[in-house]
Design a protein around this nucleic acid. Structure first.
Lengths: 164, 164
DNA sequence: ACGGCATTGTTGACGTCGACAACAATCCTC
DNA sequence: GAGGATTGTTGTCGACGTCAACAATGCCGT
């Protein structure tokens, strides 16, 4: 459908009524409206934006947060285990942990039983940083509730946990 | 918690019952279990993986698909409009459209009214490619239904449309 | 005990993507 | 006509996912 060709100049007054084409009508999303992936993607981006903004004070990204949480809850696990549970490549994890080590948040001890593995741990600083991160992340999470409504929030969390 | 120290050798038969430490017990997700963003992220990645796999035959990424759909449903719109509706930076869009142009799927006509704008259009080839893409995307979408269950699928789609 | 095979961590390289700055051309408004 | 905003464009940077290769180590059957 052509963009509503404007009436053929019977009223030459005011070339265009509200010419501010600031939002040139509404743009049709077409079949994207029927694709869950599109909305899930937009939602995920929005969530991460808020998360990143709230944790910017302590400079912890969503991925770093998930890494710290898993290490904190599973002391001594290996990098392979960490990566496979979070869906992060071993190679990627190496550089991420290198950075967290340099920041003094984590450490890699030699595994007692397996010479290939590293036993991952949080340092003291890492534990306190994780505590702060959890507090900020909880605020972030709480901010989602009013946006979704408590019912929808519960529904979505339950649904996603079920399919993950 | 140490990894369930194995029974102190009363039965020397078979050094370890199921020694395949393939998944060394279950790893605790900790507070990630209470974070919607974590599951939304995992879900989005899984969805995109399936989408990419199904559309690999015609070499169309999720982002490219969304761009083609929007152009197809809103012929003549500008790059700025396209970018702002999809949440893609103008700069990023320039290179994406450059590629789609080179592939002969889209074209940038000079806007009649505004010398700065380009009026975006699908070429004939772009229209047929979009048709194929829509068909494959519909199959992808249909595959989500059994994984979620029809009720949860509807709930989630409605909820996300409402908050987007 | 030994040799082949798998696993683990590591490094290097590549491509994609989001973000930002700068710029020229064009439009808009006073 | 001048100043300011918009649009498309280019360059650059950093974060990521991905793949290949490698050394060290563990595991296994013969």
């Amino acid at each position: 459908m052509p963009p509503a060709k404007r009436a053929t100049a019977t009223l030459p007054l005011r070339k265009t009524p509200q010419p501010k084409r600031v939002s040139p009508a509404v743009i049709d999303l077409g079949v994207l409206n029927e694709h869950l992936g599109y909305f899930v993607r937009r939602f995920q981006v929005a969530i991460f934006q808020d998360f990143i903004r709230r944790l910017s004070r302590i400079d912890i990204s969503p991925a770093q947060f998930s890494v710290l949480v898993i290490i904190g809850a599973n002391e001594g696990l290996s990098q392979s285990e960490l990566g496979s549970t979070l869906g992060i490549e071993r190679a990627r994890l190496v550089r991420m942990l290198h950075l967290l080590d340099k920041r003094g948040l984590t450490e890699r001890l030699p595994s007692s039983a397996d010479g290939r593995r590293h036993a991952l741990r949080l340092t003291r600083a890492g534990q306190t940083t994780l505590k702060q991160a959890k507090a900020l992340a909880a605020q972030h999470e709480a901010s989602l509730l009013p946006k979704l409504g408590p019912e929808r929030y519960r529904q979505m969390l339950d649904a996603l946990r079920a399919v993950s």
